[in-house]
Design a protein around this nucleic acid. Structure first.
Lengths: 191, 191, 191, 191
DNA sequence: CATGAATGAGCATTCATTCAT
DNA sequence: TATGAATGAATGCTCATTCAT
C-alpha cells in the first residue's frame, strides 16, 4: 500500500530508517517540529549524515512521519469499515482517529492534510482515509445514526477539532469521555 | 505588580505601537509566528529598533497581540453576559469567541491560555474570560439550555476545538453554520 | 588652561554638561566604557539628545572625562612641583597621580595617553603633566633622591604600572602601602 | 567535574581548533576582545559555524586563549622553580611571566585571574601558578634575596603592574631592562 | 534648547545541509 | 555507506547617533 522503495535497502539501512522514523515521531510529538535535526539523529543513535541520506530534507522527514501515521489510521479505518453495524463503525472510527492523532500541537495538521494536502506524498494515504470516511459517513447516515445534512469536509474538520479539543483538555478520562459524548450527540442530532 | 509608570506616550509613538500591533496580528495570523521580526517591522513601516523599543522581545510582541485579542474577547463576552436570555447569551458568546479566535494555527493557543497560561500578562484577560464563561455556563445550565454534566474545562476545550474546526473548514458559510450547529446540538443534548 | 568654549554657555546648559561629566566619570569608572550612552544620560537626569548635544560622540565624552582627570592631575602636580624638597615633591607627586588614576581598568589608559596620545584634545593636559614630571624627575635626580639612569618615558610607564598594581591589589591599605614602598625603593636604588 | 568525554578529535578538526586558538590569540592581543567572531573565523580560514562548534561562546574562546596562556606560564614557572639558586629562580620567573603576559590591554587580566578568577576553567592553571609563585617567593625570602615583608597578593599585583609598565613602554630593550631593574631593586630592598 | 522616539548597521549565535574522512 | 565536522545564510537583539516633537 505504501510507495515501493527504489531498491530493497540493506538490513542495517532499513533498521536505521525505521529507528529514525520512530525517534522523529517521538521527538516531534513531544517537543514540536522545531527540534534540530542533529538532536533527532543523536536520539536515534546515528549521525546527521545518515538522517539526510534517508530523508533529503527535514521537511521530508516530517512528511514521512505523517505518512506513516496516516497509513496506520487508514489501516485501522479499513478494519472498522468492515464492521457490521454502521453506527458502531462510524463512531468507533471517529474515536480511533481522534485518539491516534493525539500528540502535541503541530500534529493536528497531520489530519488537516487529509483535507487539503500540500505535499504529494501525503496525498495517497489521505485520499484513502477520505474515501473510507466517505463510505462510513454514507452508511451511518443511511442507517439514520448520523444527521443527514453533514458532508465529508465538515466531518474532516470536526475530526481535527475534536483532536484539538482533547489535546487542550488533558488526560482526565472522564472529561475526555464527556466532550466526545457532546460531539457524538451533536453528530446524532437532527436525524 | 502594578503597571510600571506607563506615561501617556507621544502621539507618533502611540501610532507606531498601534501599527506594529496591527501588523504583527496580521502577519502572525496569516504566516505563522516564524516570520522574522525584521519583516514585521518593515511591513509596519518602521525600523527593527522601533519594534524592539516597544516590545523588548519577539515573544513580548506575540504576547501583546494575544492580550489584545483576549481583551477584545473579554469585552464582547461581558456585553453578551448581560443578555436577558441565558441560552442566547451562552451560544452567542460561544460563537463570538470562536469567530474572534480565527486565524492560523498557533493562535488556537491564545485561548488555550485561558486554561493554563504561561505568561503572566495573559493571566488577567484570560481569567476574566474564564469567569465570564463560568457564569454563562452556569446560567445556561440552570435554564436547562445546556446539558448539566458539562464543566468549565470541557467548555474551554470545546471552544478551542471549535476554533480549530472552523479554521480547518475554510470560508464556506453554510458549512461553517452546519458544523457549529452540530456542536451546539451536542451542548444542548442530554438535558 | 583648558580650551575656551565657543560661547559662554547658558547656566542650565553648563549645569547639564557638568552633571554629565560627573556621571560619566562615575559610570565609566565603576562599570567600564561599555555602558550604553542612554544609561549615562538617564543617570545624569537628561535625555540622550542632550548628551549628544554636549558631546558629539561617545568617544568625545570619554575624552572629556579623561581631559578633566588629566587637568586635575596637572593642577595637583603643579602644586607639588613648587614644594621645597625635591624628593618629597617627586614621590608625593607619584603617589598622587597613582591615587588619582585609580578606578576601573580602562582608565589606566588615561595616563597612557600622557605617553602616546591618540586624541588631540588630550595632548595639551598630558603635555603639561609630562613637562611637570620632567622637571620633578630632574630635580629629584639632581638631589640624589632618584637613580640617575631613569628617563621620562620609563617614569610614565612606571606610573601606569603602579596604577595597575594598586587596582589589582584591592583596598587593603597596608598592602597598598607596601607595594608603593617597593616601587619607591626601586626608584631610589642605584643612586 | 571531569572533562566530558573528550574523544580524540579528528585530524582536521584538531587542526582547525588549533588554528582558531592561534588566530584568536593573535587577534585578541593586537586588536582587543571587541573584534567580531566572524572576523576571527575568517582570519583562521574557517566559517563562523566552525568557530562556534569548537567554542560554544565568544567568551569560551577568550577563556580558552587565556587558559592556554596560563598553562604555558605555569609550565615555564615549574621549570624555573626547579632552579638551584632561589634568587635566580624568583627573578627569572618574574621576568618570564611579565614577558609572556605581554599583549594588549585586556590581557593584563589574564594574570588578574591568578588572583580572583571568574571562570572555573581558569581556576586550575591559575591556582598552579599561584602555588608555584608562593614557593618561589618563600625560598627567595628565605635566602634573603627578597624583602621579607612581601606577601603573595602583593607579588601578584606587582606582576600585573610590571606587565602594564612594559606594555606602556614600547619595544626599546634598554628602557625595558631599566624599568625591570627598578622593580627588581625594589623587591630586593629592605632585606 | 531638551527630549526621547526612530533608525539601522552590526553582532553573537543557530541550524539545515554538504562533504571530507 | 556512516560519520560528524564544516559551512554560512538567517535571526533576534543592541546601541550609537539622528531628528521630529
Amino acid at each position: 500500500m505504501t510507495a515501493p522503495q527504489d531498491r530493497p535497502l540493506r538490513a542495517d539501512a532499513a533498521r536505521n530508517r525505521a529507528k529514525l522514523l520512530d525517534t522523529a515521531t517521538e521527538v516531534f510529538t513531544t517537543r514540536g517540529v522545531g527540534v534540530p535535526t542533529e538532536e533527532i539523529a543523536r536520539a536515534a543513535g546515528v549521525g546527521v549524515g545518515t538522517l539526510f541520506r534517508h530523508f533529503p530534507t527535514k521537511e521530508a522527514l516530517l512528511e514521512a512521519v505523517l505518512v506513516r501515521r496516516l497509513d496506520t489510521i487508514a489501516a485501522d479505518t479499513a478494519r472498522l469499515a468492515a464492521e457490521a453495524e454502521p453506527a458502531e463503525a462510524f463512531f468507533g472510527c471517529f474515536r480511533l482517529i481522534v485518539e491516534r492523532s493525539a500528540g502535541k500541537n503541530e500534529f493536528a495538521q497531520a489530519l488537516a492534510a487529509a483535507g487539503v494536502d500540500v505535499h504529494s506524498s501525503l496525498r495517497a494515504p489521505s485520499t484513502e482515509i477520505r474515501e473510507r470516511l466517505a463510505g462510513l459517513l454514507d452508511r451511518a447516515q443511511g442507517s439514520g445514526a448520523v444527521r443527514p445534512d453533514l458532508a465529508l469536509p465538515e466531518l474532516l474538520a470536526l475530526l481535527v477539532g475534536a483532536t484539538a479539543t482533547l489535546e487542550q483538555l488533558g488526560p482526565d478520562p472522564a472529561a475526555r469521555a464527556r466532550v466526545l459524548e457532546v460531539i457524538f450527540a451533536g453528530l446524532r442530532s437532527g436525524r
